[in-house]
């Protein structure tokens, strides 16, 4: 679960050390041809907020969003375990799901115990909809065929020919795939060599590795401009499922590419051996 800390006008459980207690969510999803099920088990340990939920003054809110299909909806419940169904036709590619506890009405003089000392003695007027606790957010790819544990690189990275005859390679993150644009001269050489198994290690290390590391840096950053792009969701899902979400980008990229540096040197050695053999 990722959490974006924010500055709220009142103490919020889960927002740093605003409030003592726990709000976490055990989340899983099930994809079927007809529906996507969001299955949530909420773990809440905060007397004040538990009391508000019991009285119907606050609810668990699950907010689901899919940029590809312009879908955004919120589900509300007061049960500690619940399941929410979304028709499959409303979702495509990356779906993000956020977890909150929000007030259902105005609450005067809100003063939860275990507040950070900065809030000591203060009372707050809570409005309908105000966030009282945040449980973070996560994302998944709403596509049954996509396996983040064995992702084909071509599903989110493309190498294409640019408009310049020579010059440096450029990266375009604004497409559905991370698009690596090579000059016409470089692209011709790329096409002539890419199918040769002996050079694939070199290509991965010299072209794909730096780009992938940079892309991971973008995924790990907050408020990325590219969060709605298909490649972003796929890469995020791969990082999550391989347990790489908190690794440095360069290290994570090397794990995804399966030791590109070692394969790079193997490629170089094999080419050198081939040339030496030819000279004999």
């Amino acid at each position: 679960m990722k959490i974006n800390l924010k500055s709220y006008p009142h103490p919020v459980l889960g927002n740093g050390d605003d409030l003592g207690g726990v709000f976490s969510v055990d989340f899983r999803y099930e994809l079927s041809k007809q529906d996507v099920a969001l299955i949530c088990v909420f773990d809440l340990k905060s007397k004040a907020i538990e009391e508000l939920i019991k009285k119907g003054k606050a609810s668990f809110i699950v907010e689901a969003e899919c940029a590809s299909t312009f879908y955004r909806n919120a589900f509300s419940t007061q049960k500690t375990a619940d399941k929410f169904i979304i028709p499959s036709k409303l979702l495509r590619e990356r779906v993000t799901v956020g977890f909150y506890i929000c007030s259902n009405e105005e609450i005067a003089n809100y003063q939860p115990s275990d507040c950070h000392p900065d809030y000591k003695g203060l009372k707050f007027d809570i409005e309908n909809g105000d966030v009282l606790a945040m449980g973070g957010y996560c994302s998944f790819i709403a596509e049954k065929e996509f396996d983040p544990m064995r992702p084909p690189l071509s599903s989110f990275v493309a190498v294409v020919e640019g408009i310049r005859h020579t010059g440096p390679m450029e990266i375009d993150y604004s497409s559905d795939k991370i698009t690596i644009e090579l000059s016409k001269a470089d692209y011709k050489n790329y096409c002539d060599t890419v199918r040769e198994k002996a050079v694939q290690g070199v290509i991965h290390a010299s072209i794909v590795l730096p780009v992938l590391a940079d892309a991971i840096y973008q995924v790990n950053g907050r408020d990325s401009d590219h969060a709605d792009r298909n490649w972003f969701g796929r890469l995020e899902s791969i990082l999550e499922s391989k347990g790489l979400a908190h690794k440095p980008p360069l290290e994570a990229a090397q794990i995804i590419l399966e030791s590109p540096m070692a394969r790079n040197f193997e490629s170089i050695l094999s080419l050198l051996n081939f040339n030496n053999t030819e000279e004999v």
Partner: peptide, 20 residues
């Protein structure tokens, strides 16, 4: 490049998402 980007936007819907 600017003209090509314009075509990508209006003929392809750059990005493959609704933003595009």
């Amino acid at each position: 490049r600017a003209a090509i980007n314009q075509v990508l936007e209006h003929w392809f819907g750059t990005g493959g998402d609704l933003k595009g």
